[in-house]
Design a binder for these strands. Structure first.
Lengths: 223, 223
DNA sequence: TAGATTGTTAATCGATTAACAATC
DNA sequence: TAGATTGTTAATCGATTAACAATC
């Protein structure tokens, strides 16, 4: 492996970062934002780990994948680390989002403040219901799905949320891919079939409850 | 079927099943339900794996944690495996659920059909807004959070969903714990501090988008 | 029988933790 | 200086994959 000395800031080429590490990065970011809000200037791997139930070693190891952000003897400056993690996650710049499907869940997501707060802005909504098209929801215009290619281009939309019923999800995904969308957050409880260059994350709310059910019925041996 | 030699049907004592295995179990269940819907009587580890992007070995290994469900040379009978997985997950019996927080997201979750379909029924809703208390949403009565102990006992509610703003989430969790709730699905973007005997799963919607952002900005080396 | 597929063991691979020199 | 804490290496632990005898 080539870049022995050079710590790569951005894991280019074959520098595979485990998915688990990236998901913890988001949790670190969230805690750091809370720490700043509570007036903390600095923190440490021990403190971050304790807040999240991880070991201090894991916190340091996770961050080490991306560079050196701390000060030996001191710890991490919260706001510095926040900026660094945002840069890694790609949320240092705002993202324009589309959402497809304006049922109960879709409309709730359009009003969700947490997206805006982390740099995600829904700028276009799509549906196929004539009663909804042309209207505005939460200040966002509703278009027919057929127009998604044009609108996505116009607004430089790269990410989309699917919140349609399962039977339509694959068709919608195909349309989004054709529109050049690069990442899909899918709330329909189906596995989407997508070209390799399109990223997807599925959120199945019933599955989350199933996992909770299991952990209640099968509590860990100790605890 | 009898649990062959001593294959534990339920991993009691220190028989720790990896969390990753359990989450794949839910995915197997979902695909199996689709296969049955599409008229398939049987399936195989190869087919299930292909549908989900896993190896066949992994599918068999995952199931082997819980017993023997297949037939050499044949595969798995879909409906049999569905029943087995439901039993493992604890969703062979219906669960009564409470939800706290009736903002946009909370109300959307109350109307979410996928819960019912997997055996989860929201039977009580809680809020602190006097304008909502006493009303009914989606046929479910809305109570003041202060009454959650009584209602939870009356309806044998063991699981709850938190869909309140972040600043209230910990207080709400404390109330639910006091009410004897055993598992919490938390949509507030905060880490809850809970006694060890209470299970929790956090769903942070902004974090899901952050993960998507990362994977779009840092696509895997090959793909 | 030949072909298919399981359950399981052994081998590989990857991720977490412990330990510690370097640093402030 | 003594105390705190990092980044990193080595050791441990756990999870995935490959291989194959057993089975239908």
């Amino acid at each position: 492996m080539a870049d022995a000395k050079d710590k790569p800031d951005e894991p280019t080429s074959d520098n595979a970062v485990p998915k688990a590490v990236v998901s913890r990065l988001s949790l670190y970011l969230r805690e750091l934002q809370h720490l700043v809000r509570d007036g903390h200037e600095t923190t440490s791997s021990t403190q971050l780990g304790r807040l999240l139930g991880f070991t201090d070693a894991q916190v340091r190891k996770d961050l080490a994948y991306f560079g050196q952000f701390g000060y030996p003897g001191i710890g991490y400056r919260c706001s510095e680390l926040i900026d660094a993690i945002k840069k890694i996650l790609g949320t240092n710049q705002p993202w324009a989002l589309a959402i497809v499907g304006l049922g109960n869940l879709g409309r709730a997501l359009m009003g969700y403040r947490g997206f805006q707060h982390q740099g995600f802005r829904i700028v276009a909504a799509f549906d196929v219901d004539p009663a909804k098209i042309g209207k505005s929801i939460e200040g966002v215009p509703v278009h027919h799905l057929d127009d998604c290619s044009r609108i996505a281009t116009e607004h430089h939309i790269r990410l989309a949320i699917i919140a349609v019923p399962s039977p339509s999800a694959q068709k919608v995904a195909d349309a989004l891919v054709a529109a050049g969308i690069e990442g899909i957050l899918n709330f329909a409880p189906v596995t989407l079939n997508l070209p390799k260059h399109v990223r997807t994350i599925g959120v199945d709310l019933a599955i989350e409850l199933e996992q909770l059910s299991f952990s209640v019925v099968n509590p860990p041996a100790k605890g």
